[in-house]
């Protein structure tokens, strides 16, 4: 088996027990994806698979045959930073930096879900278009724990990058 990580075809693991997370970190030496709990409770290992955010610690690597995986190392198209990475620095959206790659990958997946119209637990109207209010972003990012307490900076960075200030039109929708 093989899959594509950040645009490069790479071999799968020899042992089916190996999680996508451990495969990335220990075999491919892509250590930007972090192991926080190894049990699906913290979000530090979040990566994108075909554009969707998942937890690589709960993913058996063998299951991802043929899929395209993007990790924190593959976000920026050039040597420069992805705009969200830059916003994390600008808004001080981290302290120790350990949950950060997961937060960033998660936010990118989150924005795609919102564009697609996936509602959230705090959406008042399940059928309406998604407007990424602060509450919506907070709920949608709640699968990514941060213990340093950088929550405000993280949401600020995401809001600044993914949900630009509401226009008159969206404000009216919000009010309605």
């Amino acid at each position: 088996m093989s899959f594509v990580v950040n645009g490069n075809a790479v071999p799968g693991p020899a042992d089916p027990r190996v999680s996508l997370l451990d495969h990335l970190r220990e075999t491919l030496h892509l250590t930007g994806t972090k192991k926080g709990c190894n049990q699906g409770a913290c979000g530090a290992c979040t990566v994108l698979v075909d554009g969707e955010r998942i937890l690589s610690c709960l993913a058996l690597a063998v299951q991802y045959d043929g899929r395209e995986i993007t990790t924190i190392e593959g976000l920026a198209e050039t040597a420069a930073l992805h705009p969200l990475q830059a916003a994390f620095i600008e808004h001080d959206g981290f302290q120790c930096g350990y949950c950060t790659p997961g937060q960033i990958c998660s936010a990118i997946g989150m924005a795609a879900e919102a564009r697609r119209g996936v509602p959230s637990h705090v959406s008042a109207d399940l059928a309406a278009d998604v407007i990424l209010t602060r509450d919506e972003i907070q709920e949608r990012m709640s699968g990514n724990l941060c213990r340093c307490g950088a929550h405000n900076g993280i949401i600020d960075a995401i809001q600044a990058t993914m949900a630009p200030a509401p226009t008159a039109e969206t404000s009216a929708e919000l009010a309605a």
């Binding site: 994806t33 930096g97 350990y98």
Partner: peptide, 20 residues
């Protein structure tokens, strides 16, 4: 802004379990 910011947002800051 944090001096180690770019390394951390790119996942390039090496933590204890990432040495080999």
């Amino acid at each position: 802004s944090r001096r180690d910011g770019a390394l951390k947002v790119k996942g390039e800051a090496g933590f204890a379990a990432e040495f080999r």
